[in-house]
Amino acid sequence: MSKQWASRDGSFKRQVSKFQEIISPDHPVFKPAKGRYWLYVSLACPWAHRTLLTRALKGLTSVIGVSVVHWHLDNKGWRFLPIDEATLEMANQKNLYKDKAGGIVGALSDKSSPVGKVPNDSARLFVDGTFDPNEHAQRLSDLYYKADPEYDARFTVPVLWDTKLKAIVSNESAQIIRVLNSGVLDEVAGDEATKLDLVPKELESQIDEFNSWVYDNINNGVYKAGFAESAEIYEKEVTNVFQHLDKVEGILKQKYETLKSKYKGLDEVLSRYFTVGEQLTEADVRLYTTIVRFDPVYVQHFKCNLNTIRDGYPFIHLWLRNLYWNYDAFRHTTDFDHIKLHYTRSHSRINPLGLTPLGPSPDIKPLRD
């Protein structure tokens, strides 16, 4: 881990996003339009995953295209795969940018052989990553410098890009998903817009309150444990993560028992089984992207191994599998190969040999065992 990620006491510090504008009919610059905005994401990154999920759930895939960086983050940052005219024409004809995961096929390797055999310089288009059709950038950093030649921080995903002005609207995931949920792009999406509201007014305060402690203690908590550079800080942070997983488990247990007393059958219960209220909200989206990575990477790679979700948290586990198997947007934007390879190959300070564990198997269990 680069020392710029750590404080003097060895604790992890997250970078504050520099670009934080919105899209709105009232905004002096960034106004709603079909095809004007583009998302640059990593399928491995939980923060970028939030934006992919919201884009899919809101029915905005035809409005906002997606490019996916290579899963391997090297010392120069995120990179795109090379582009040529034939590939560009094929991608345009098949509308691959409009896919829920930017056209990634969802399988990095023959499952009969270890995913760990895939080399870091593997460059299979629409498997390891995609390209940038807008600026033909080789690196994500190219876009940052185009937006601000004096930019001097890390080059993070996601990036919401304005193809018209060649500018970054926002690189703050929490803000991007609020913009996508706001409805400002529903009109240009037409009949494809789902009209789903992930932050309904009557639940907004509860969602914000839930998000606030989940972010600090779980979403970011696993990073604070994994990137800790002293035993004292690691032990404090990993204990805190599991204390708050216990809290989520308690919330979901009470929710499940209440629903079970009101409705007949598991399907009816699961259709209302969410963290806040009885409908899918932003709180579920933001928690999901951490929980779905927990057993595959955070348990072993970030040493968050006091328990696993599948063995220690039955109500979180049921909630996770319900989202993954019953909602296409969750399943189609979750790529376990990108996730596992990115973490184990990109964090050489944590995993200097770059070995990628085979397990857990399966990546996620069936909804009904």
Rank of each mutant, 00 (worst) to 15 (best):
K146T: 08
G183S: 05
A283Y: 03
N351D: 13
H347E: 14
S113T: 15
W5P: 00
R124L: 11
Q243G: 06
T130V: 08
E257Y: 08
A91L: 03
N75P: 05
S261L: 12
S112V: 03
D84R: 05
V285I: 15
G35Y: 06
G190Y: 06
F227M: 13
N181F: 02
L203H: 10
G116P: 12
K255I: 00
I176V: 03
G277K: 05
H338A: 01
H347F: 15
Q4Y: 14
V105D: 08
F242G: 00
G250I: 04
D110W: 00
E229P: 00
P314I: 07
L96W: 12
K260F: 03
N134E: 05
H72D: 13
D186A: 10
Y343C: 05
K264D: 12
P357H: 07
G129S: 10
P149A: 01
S112N: 15
N220A: 13
A283R: 03
V292H: 08
Y223A: 05
N220M: 13
W213E: 07
I251G: 08
L81H: 02
N217F: 08
P360E: 00
D335E: 11
N240D: 10
K260R: 15
W319I: 01
N95M: 06
Q15S: 09
K31F: 01
E232T: 06
P46M: 02
E172Q: 07
S230R: 02
I350T: 11
Q206E: 11
A174Q: 04
L245Y: 11
L270S: 10
H49A: 10
N326Q: 15
V29F: 12
V276L: 04
L53E: 06
G59D: 08
P119Y: 03
M1D: 10
V285D: 06
I316S: 05
V115K: 07
Y37M: 10
S2R: 15
I309N: 12
S2H: 15
F210R: 10
W71G: 11
I309R: 09
A174G: 13
L57F: 12
E85K: 14
Q93C: 04
E21D: 13
L60P: 08
K340N: 06
E278R: 10
L367E: 06
R331G: 03
A137F: 08
E237N: 11
Q279G: 01
V127E: 00
P119G: 05
G103T: 02
